[in-house]
Design a protein around this nucleic acid. Structure first.
Lengths: 138, 138
DNA sequence: TTCCGTGCAAACGCTTTGCACGCAT
DNA sequence: ATGCGTGCAAAGCGTTTGCACGGAA
């Protein structure tokens, strides 16, 4: 995604365009897997740019509000991970090597109606993580 | 579950029986919803018993190892929640009032074979959280 | 008696916040 | 020119850990 397009996306969401926000967004789209705040921080430094960790947290919080990204907490280490919400995907985590794969299938949608009927809730979203062993680790 | 049975369960898992472990287990079975460590702590105090928070964390970690309980991290507040693993259930969280309902339906099982074929992973478990608005909050 | 479990307090690490400065608008 | 975004440092807060004591086996 070009800088221009990112700028437009930000404008559409009412966000000011800054180099930090642009680069955080860029990093997340070039590394389409769940990243922790400090992973993003180090990837940022690798681009020969400096940034404050707290700025990253603030940007991530902002992106969350605008639903540009998703926050996930992998159970292992209590660290939060963030991913761009390009479409709807789920994570498949290898319990041994921690490798993460994405799954396009989403069984949940088909059942949302049933669950709404059963619970009277209005379902607006869901989070699904799958665990298992990857081919190499089996 | 009677104290005796809990004792047997602990023995089966190779755990010493202590009043703290017994009461933590008791509290979790009497409040079958995701509890944070400090919720358990306060429920413990309500029983006119005192305990250290760190003991609770150690007990929870132990129960996790033995797979007596499950750990979930609700995205809101970075706090971990714990539930007994009586059978397989999922959470339905109201985004407005934070009330939590349990859902018996689990659409995921039916798709595990498909996902295994598509990914070559051996799927061993999953975590599903649903979000929405409860009847009162809609 | 032995060793594990617990309580207490301090440490830890991720995340958040207050404040002053600088940049986008 | 104005107000929002950022950097820095410090605070916050859930969780973990070290150590000495007490209780389970």
């Amino acid at each position: 995604m070009k800088s221009n397009e990112v700028k437009q996306l930000f404008q559409k969401e009412g966000l000011r365009f800054t180099s930090q926000r642009n680069l955080v967004f860029d990093i997340m789209s070039k590394h389409p897997r769940p990243l922790t705040a400090d992973e993003i921080y180090f990837l940022y430094l690798e681009q020969d740019e400096s940034i404050s960790l707290s700025t990253i947290y603030r940007i991530l919080e902002l992106f969350l509000e605008k639903e540009i990204i998703t926050k996930t907490l992998l159970t292992d280490n209590n660290k939060a991970c963030y991913v761009l919400r390009h479409g709807h995907k789920h994570l498949l985590v290898c319990l041994n090597c921690k490798k993460i794969t994405e799954v396009k299938e989403c069984p949940v949608h088909y059942f949302e109606d049933d669950i709404q009927n059963a619970t009277q809730f209005k379902i607006t979203g869901h989070k699904l993580e799958l665990y298992g062993l990857c081919p190499e680790c089996q």
